[in-house]
């Protein structure tokens, strides 16, 4: 399991968080319980299994629901 921190464009509506969370939940390999969307900081933090999924897939999923990902960081 690794941890990822994704910096998104500035989020302005609280329902954005729900959409982003929903989009990430549908990806297998992400620990669903660990997903936290920080609305004010416009960040997503989560844990994932690096053998099943990578950050680019997360970026694509977030793009697909209409948000830009500015920066991605992976930690052990």
């Amino acid at each position: 399991m690794k941890k990822a921190v994704l910096q998104l464009e500035t989020l302005v509506c609280p329902s954005c968080s729900m959409k982003i969370e929903g989009a990430l939940k549908s990806i297998s390999g992400i620990d669903k319980e660990s997903i936290s969307v920080l609305f004010n900081a416009s960040k997503v933090k989560l844990s994932f299994d690096e053998t099943q999924v990578n950050v680019d897939a997360m970026k694509a999923a977030i793009n697909k629901v209409g948000f830009e990902v500015l920066k991605m960081q992976v930690k052990e």
């Binding site: 329902s15 729900m18 929903g22 989009a23 549908s26 209409g66």
Partner: peptide, 16 residues
């Protein structure tokens, strides 16, 4: 409408 569709895709009935 686009935002509404995205919300529906992830099973959220949003304000949009």
């Amino acid at each position: 409408a686009l935002q509404a569709i995205q919300a529906l895709k992830v099973k959220v009935i949003s304000i949009e």
